[in-house]
Amino acid sequence: MDSQAIATLPEHGHAEHEHSPHLHHHFATEDQQREASNFGMWLFLLTEIMFFGGMFTAYLIYRNWYYPAFVAGSHWMKIWAGTLNTTVLICSSFTMAMAVYSAETRKRKALLRYLSLTLFLGFVFLGIKAYEWHNEWVEHHVPGLNFSINDFTHVDPRYPLDKPLAPDMAEKTQSYFSLYFLLTGVHALHMLVGVSILLFLIFNAWKGAYTTGHMTFIENFGLYWHFVDIIWIFLFPLLYLISRHQ
């Protein structure tokens, strides 16, 4: 219609427009597209912060209300397993960062190697987590499904320094374990999603994608993977470490 008045236009990146197969029609340049999807990914991570935020709020409040129960509950965590898992996740974050670097420098083999390593470490994390959950099931520490307060009303010979809790405070260890399963469960769900996307990424990278200069997808997945790592960086001290002594 009447576009001539508003369209005194410098031809905006039209050359790329016709040449790059990855540029969607509504973006002017590849840079604009890349920054837009990067920004979108960060906004999505914001929603993830708030999603976990609700659970962290609950943890904070109940920990203050039922302090002895939370201390007693956390004494049943295996610190070696938590430490190992933290290390595994940090390693996987490093390999993921290296994978993004390999895609940037267009090295297909290195990309495949690092992605596979990340995938492997992701599975190791989930394995160790599953082992811990299995133990908690065996010890009757799963609230709602399989829970008994026996461990908290009696002194366990393995933890001779603990004082037994009064029965009603011992009941409150369920709060601790509810939040423990909730937080680690939702975290593990994010890991599962991440691992599935990794499989898809590896398949695509094997076919040669991402090493041709178009790597927005792998970059954004990297952000997701690091974010899941950050959540664990907070879960580890909150659930395993801070009550080790009391």
Partner: peptide, 14 residues
Amino acid sequence: IAVIKATLVVLFFM
């Protein structure tokens, strides 16, 4: 320490 670690991840890995 957790905040420092998270900041490192955000600043450099991300």
